[in-house]
């Protein structure tokens, strides 16, 4: 069956030729992608590398970094919401803070010396708390006085 053999050989050559075109032709794209990542990563700051951008926590990175630098690793902190209904809508805020503040752990507000307040103003927490960091977009980090 020489015709079939020839067809198979042509097919193999065609496959390899296509792979050559794809591989060699797209290598510069791949290197460009890597270079782009390399440049972006090189220009990123410590906090940009450490903290993700979270839609429900706008402007939160400086506050979380302040909180990390304030609280010892065995600290416990509470999470409160400016209004009760927000807790249900933004329940994932607790989870994000758990992940990003680990190994510090969450506790009931009355048992925690530190607190994050979501969708709050400086007056929300009252006089018992000293605000240590304010995102300006509703996220506060405070310490009980």
């Amino acid at each position: 069956m020489p015709a079939v053999r020839i067809a198979i050989r042509i097919g193999v050559v065609a496959c390899v030729a296509a792979a050559c075109l794809l591989g060699a032709g797209r290598l510069d794209d791949a290197v460009a992608v890597f270079d782009f990542h390399a440049d972006v990563n090189h220009s990123a700051t410590f906090t940009e590398r450490r903290y993700p951008e979270i839609d429900s926590l706008p402007g939160a990175v400086p506050v979380m970094e302040d909180a990390r630098l304030w609280m010892p690793e065995n600290a416990t902190y509470g999470v409160v919401f400016g209004q009760r209904f927000l807790e249900r809508r933004f329940g994932n805020v607790r989870y994000f803070l758990f992940l990003l503040m680990w190994p510090r752990s969450q506790a009931q507000l009355e048992r925690a010396p530190w607190v994050f307040c979501y969708e709050c103003t400086r007056s929300t927490l009252g006089d018992r708390y000293e605000v240590l960091s304010d995102s300006g977009q509703g996220l506060l980090f405070a310490r009980r006085s």
Binding site: G23, A24, L27, A30, V31, V33, F34, D35, H37, A38, N41, H42, A44, E48, R49, R50, Y51, P52, E53
Partner: peptide, 20 residues
């Protein structure tokens, strides 16, 4: 080409963050 690919990958990953 594969060597160049991995050199580029090294540069891309060396300072990558987990933000995304």
């Amino acid at each position: 080409g594969i060597v160049v690919y991995f050199e580029g990958l090294f540069r891309a990953q060396r300072l990558a963050g987990v933000g995304r």
